[in-house]
Design a protein around this nucleic acid. Structure first.
Length: 747
DNA sequence: GAGCACTGC
């Protein structure tokens, strides 16, 4: 007899390797599987999912897994999972919840029999892939077969036949997209939302959808996994108006973490200059603490480069090498090329002299090291308590980044980075009193800090009729929702009753902001969809322009050669086309101070958008005449961005945004000369002063023609802009009369 | 004449 409960029903001859795959192996099993049975199956010679013998590597990994605290809780977990439809799992990093819980579910839920899948979402791509890889190894299957993953541009799953995927890791955005076309998420038997405490917009929307879906699909199991502080709130959210069969519709399942203790220190006094205080602290650690690398959190590129320079040039480091070990400073932020990002994994430098004091590495990083990147060997964390955070002001429709104090949860996460390999220390550059009384408990969820135009379009597409009463875990400000609805209505994606129009249906299918989607969809009318597709792709990637501090003049010169006078959008098109023509020259991008990475990304996005265009029969066309073509592109731009237009006021070169009357200046990166009367902009950024960036000149007639509702003159506040529009209308009307009359008026 | 925390479709 076999001791594998998954195989016990089979005659001995069929328990070996090489079984026919059509055999329904587990069809007899009760839905309820207990920990004992799962443990037996895991320990058996045969893999219950592939029916092949387990490898030696599998057995080694299994021994390691048995050491995880969560492994010891398998019985308890499976009992709860069987009994409840919705479960909240609480666990700190290092608890193994992301790898183990989905596996327990796979053994218990038998998705491979039911023909359904277990989904596990992650907020980031890298984690999606690496967790899936780890779980495939642990389950002794090939990644992309029984265990797979997917995110934008990458689908490592098997849809049918041998090795069909039954456990799929995916980014939260992918699952949300899928929900837009199948609101019941019918492919899945269990959906696990991991890292819910990060509160991405996609995870927040998914929580709302799943909460209501649970009532329609009583067979669907839902697990929400989160770090400690948020879990109770999430539990209360799912428990209220729950499915109601038990007094605790969404119980908490706690998983202990397994990190080393981190000792936290505070300053005695508040620090007026946190960069300077941070540098002092780094040097103090280097002087007085045991070996071990340092992680310093600052807010942005400029600050980080400045701090690195100051640390490197500190007198103390350049004194006696027999007393002070070498200190290597490694900057880390997202816009660094991957090759330079890799430097954070380099070992600390060796002592300068043999037997001399040991070297040390200090990583100076943005928030990217708080969650996205994990650096082993960090023993000391220096936390000044700030990060750049996004704010959205619905009144002027502007998103901006502001240096702001972090939350307690974020401070805790930062400190935890010191205890990954051994006990560590965290130096907080603020007082304990300030920590307790000034820092907020949690970082604000993204949904409260963003422009929601895109999200609202998605929600409407998901069938949410009444946005104001949608069951958000945290509801956005009504004004933010109003602004989004207003924009979508002006774009004709929603009718006056807030319902999706046929145009809106197609817009929602594009993975783009509504303005960009609209541009693409209208572009065939101007016979420029081939070009608009390129412009939109270029607008969807981080900046393509490189400007190394030592080569600014050369970079500006290279840029000037590619600049098109009518505007930055056409310049982007020119860059992409020139890049394409020089595809055979590997060094072309670098020689022209352009980011090869961003250009390749734009190509990738272009190909994906082209597929969406084909699916919805948006024709791909172009025209020969360059002047007409450029006008067509600018007209298509107006159709999407007519609400982001500014008018020149007076001779000082300032612009006023239409209707909102915000004073703005052309960003210095702008290739347009300051003579243009009417300009359309992609971005309003608020730094030392308000700028508009990525700007193109437009003709006011186009505004009146393609956005008559928005450019209804009566709706404009009194001012220069209104007068200019009135003049235009008058001259247009008089233009229909005879020439002499117009002439006489002028004279 | 100056800046881009981080994700995601």
């Amino acid at each position: 007899m076999t001791d594998n409960p998954y195989l016990a029903h089979l005659p001995p001859s069929q328990r070996g390797a090489g079984l026919s795959s059509s055999e329904p192996l587990f069809g007899f099993l009760p839905r309820k599987v207990n920990g004992e049975q799962v443990r037996k199956a895991m320990g058996h010679d045969l893999n219950p999912f592939t029916k092949r013998p387990h490898s030696a590597e599998y057995k080694k990994i299994l021994e390691v897994r048995k050491g995880l605290p969560v492994y010891a809780q398998m019985n308890e977990f499976l009992e709860m999972f069987t009994k409840h439809q919705i479960l909240i799992v609480v666990g700190e990093t290092g608890s193994g919840k992301s790898t183990q819980i989905p596996q327990f579910v796979a053994y218990s839920d038998m998705p491979h029999i039911k023909g359904k899948l277990v989904a596990c979402t992650q907020p980031r791509r890298v984690a999606t892939m690496s967790v899936a890889q780890r779980v495939a190894d642990e389950m002794d299957v090939q990644l992309g077969k029984e265990v797979g993953y997917s995110y934008r541009f990458e689908d490592m799953t098997t849809g049918s036949g041998e090795g069909k995927t039954f456990l799929e890791y995916m980014t939260d955005g992918v699952l949300l997209r899928e929900a837009m076309n199948d609101t019941d998420l019918s492919r899945y038997s269990t959906i696990i939302l991991d890292e819910a405490h990060e509160r991405t917009i996609a995870t927040d929307i998914l929580m709302g959808l799943l909460k209501s879906l649970a009532k329609r699909r009583t067979d669907l199991k839902i697990i929400v996994m989160s770090a400690t502080l948020d879990a109770v709130k999430i539990q209360a959210y799912f428990s209220a108006h729950g499915t109601g069969k038990t007094p605790f519709p969404a119980p908490l399942f706690k998983v202990p973490g397994r990190t080393h203790p981190v000792e936290v220190f505070y300053t005695q006094e508040p620090q007026p200059d946190y960069v300077e205080a941070a540098i002092r602290t780094v040097l103090m650690i280097h002087r007085g603490e045991d070996p071990g690398d340092i992680l310093l959190f600052l807010t942005g590129e400029e600050e980080i480069e400045e701090a690195c320079l100051k640390i490197k040039s500190d007198d103390f480091l350049n004194t006696d090498p027999s007393r002070v070990g070498p200190l290597v400073c490694v900057p880390l932020y997202s816009s660094l090329p991957p090759q330079q990002q890799q430097r954070i994994f380099d070992a600390a430098p060796n002592p300068t002299t043999e037997g001399g004091p040991p070297g040390r590495k200090v990583v100076v990083s943005t928030n990217i090291a708080e969650t996205s990147l994990t650096i082993d060997g960090i023993v000391y964390v220096v936390d000044p308590g700030f990060s750049k955070q996004k704010f959205y002001n619905p009144r002027i429709r502007v998103e901006s980044l502001l240096v702001s104090p972090i939350s307690k949860a974020s401070a805790q996460q930062r400190a935890g980075r010191a205890g990954r390999t051994r006990p560590g220390k965290c130096f907080r550059l603020y007082t304990k009193k300030d920590f307790i009384s000034d820092l907020e408990e949690q970082t604000h969820p993204e949904i409260l800090m963003s422009n929601l135009a895109n999200t609202v379009l998605e929600l409407v597409k998901l069938g949410v009729k009444d946005l104001v009463h949608f069951d958000f875990l945290d509801a956005p400000a009504p004004e933010t929702l109003m602004r989004a609805l207003e924009l979508l209505n002006y774009l004709a994606a929603l009718n006056d009753d807030g319902e999706l129009t046929p145009l809106g249906e197609v817009m929602a299918e594009f993975p783009l902001n509504p303005q960009l989607a609209k541009m693409i969809i209208v572009s065939p009318e101007f016979k420029v969809s081939n070009e608009v597709l390129t412009v939109v792709s270029m607008l969807s990637v981080p900046t393509i322009w490189l400007r190394p501090p030592s080569e600014r003049a050369a970079a500006d010169q290279a840029k000037a050669l590619l600049t098109v006078p009518e505007g930055d959008h056409l310049t982007m098109l020119n860059v992409f086309n020139t890049y394409h023509r020089n595809k055979s020259d590997r060094d072309w991008a670098r020689n022209n101070f352009l980011s090869a990475r961003a250009l390749a990304q734009a190509e990738n996005i272009r190909a994906q958008l082209l597929r969406t265009m084909e699916r919805y029969e948006v024709e791909l066309i172009s025209m020969e005449d360059e002047r007409k073509r450029n006008n067509g592109i600018r007209q298509a731009l107006v159709c999407g961005f007519f609400m982001q237009v500014a008018h020149k006021e007076g001779e000082k070169g300032n612009y006023l945004t239409v209707k909102d009357n915000q004073v703005v200046a052309l960003h210095p990166s702008c290739g347009l000369d300051a003579q243009s009367q009417w300009v359309l902009f992609n971005e309003f950024i608020l730094t030392k002063r308000p700028y508009i960036r990525t700007v193109t000149e437009v003709k006011p007639e186009w505004l009146l023609e393609y956005a008559p509702l928005y450019y209804d003159i009566a709706s404009f506040p009194n001012g220069e802009t209104k007068k200019a529009l009135q003049r235009l209308v008058t001259s247009k009307h008089s233009g229909k009369g005879t020439r002499p009359r117009r002439k006489s008026k002028k004279n």
